[in-house]
Design a protein around this nucleic acid. Structure first.
Lengths: 233, 233
DNA sequence: GTTTTTAAAAGTACTTTTTACTTTTATATT
DNA sequence: AATATAAAAGTAAAAAGTACTTTTAAAAAC
């Protein structure tokens, strides 16, 4: 099947892996799921969820496969972040890795499976030291998550089905590590008309209670003006 | 050097290549450099510039290496776009490719070298059929170029050192395939204070002549508010 | 040498969006 | 019935965006 010109390069074939930066949202905190590495080198240290890409699958297939094995979740939201190919990044061999971030709703049965693998959720401002270049991967994923969040109201996959505007705002506060103005945030979000107001209220946060919303079915009007302007200025 | 756990996976090693979407700007047109593929399969058909990633280099090194070989240019602006890993995307073998786009100034000596390789510049709205999934790669690169151009005034690498505002506007017209309002574009660009007005004028486009500008040294104030708002709306 | 022509450059008025607030509201708790 | 709380609505000023018009500089035509 492979032609001769390809054969000459057999010696240059590389290991290909995926690494997943798994974001979750729990207790009003943006969290990240980390694992204690099961194999040498650096066995036992904290790392992102990784896995090999088999010869007959795409890197995204591989990411879904490892995510599913560890959490049981299907249909996880995945976005490719970047590919790292420094031959020395992994002391175990010349591994090229394709990075993804995943957004998952922590309030799912997933947590049981996660425990079996010695995984733990960490808040993003208190991460332990990570193996290899995984701190760089985390930074890159967060950057990409911020970029996406500024063009699209993410939350569909991180929040429970019903949520308050305050809850969504808090998620954005976490992602951007700043405090959005409650009134202005509400006005902006509602002006996008991507949420549907329900008759139910959440009474846990105030006397008055806050109406619950849910996302309208994903379709048109998904992308918007940047939520956060002035990228750097 | 490689540990046993890695060795088990030798069979899953993959060919790794890079593909470069090379953008240039000439005759007020955004162009793309394409090559007639030198090896089977699909020999002779138009394709992006590609090459193998050697075991001891990063994909970016590889991209720079092949770009330098074909154009003689150093310090080309490169941005990683996406990684494609469908095992069937290349009929010649299970090749995973890391895509980059490059911005180069066509008015350079490069063109001589380019000719030796049977390469040609095509305007982006009149591309020939491309091999494999290269049309997808082109679309992805253009999308990324647009995203970047909306946050940063690109042009440093595509335009000659001295240029008029009209010239920069035309580049943006090309990138976004729309007509920006001359007055508003000028006002916006100048408000960013990233350009330095020169005493020279370009007299080729009008009686009055247009002042030439150059980019201020790259430093602060590189990222800006989106130039193009309402990503999709 | 005056007029014409051209695109550059500046200006203008209007609309929309953002920002930093204040006020009102609904309801559990005191 | 009064109080306290965060939700929700409202408001006014500033900034930014948009769709234009006017003025300007200089080459070319008359």
């Amino acid at each position: 099947m492979e032609t001769s010109i390809y054969e000459q390069y057999q010696g240059n074939k590389r290991f290909v892996s995926v690494d997943c930066v798994i974001f979750g949202y729990e207790d009003e905190q943006l969290k990240l799921l980390l694992f204690q590495r099961a194999i040498e080198p650096s066995k036992g240290e904290w790392s992102l969820l990784g896995g090999w890409v088999n010869a007959n699958e795409t890197s995204e297939d591989a990411a879904r496969r490892v995510l599913n094995k560890l959490t049981g979740l299907e249909d996880v939201y995945l976005e490719q972040v970047h590919t790292f190919s420094n031959p020395n990044r992994d002391p175990g061999g010349s591994v090229i890795t394709v990075e993804y971030y995943a957004l998952i709703n922590i309030d799912e049965k997933a947590n049981n499976l996660i425990k079996d693998y010695g995984a733990r959720w960490f808040t993003i401002d208190a991460l332990p030291p990570l193996i290899f270049d995984h701190d760089v991967l985390v930074a890159k994923a967060l950057e990409k998550l911020r970029l996406r969040s500024s063009y699209e109201i993410i939350g569909r996959k991180l929040l429970p089905e019903k949520f308050t505007i305050t809850c969504l705002r808090n998620l954005y506060n976490q992602i951007f590590q700043r405090q959005f103005d409650p009134g202005n945030f509400r006005k902006k979000i509602l002006s996008l008309k991507i949420l549907e107001k329900l008759d139910e209220k959440d009474m846990s946060e105030s006397r008055k209670g806050a109406y619950l919303f849910k996302f309208k079915p994903k379709k048109q009007t998904e992308f918007i003006d940047p939520i956060v302007k002035r990228s750097l200025s």
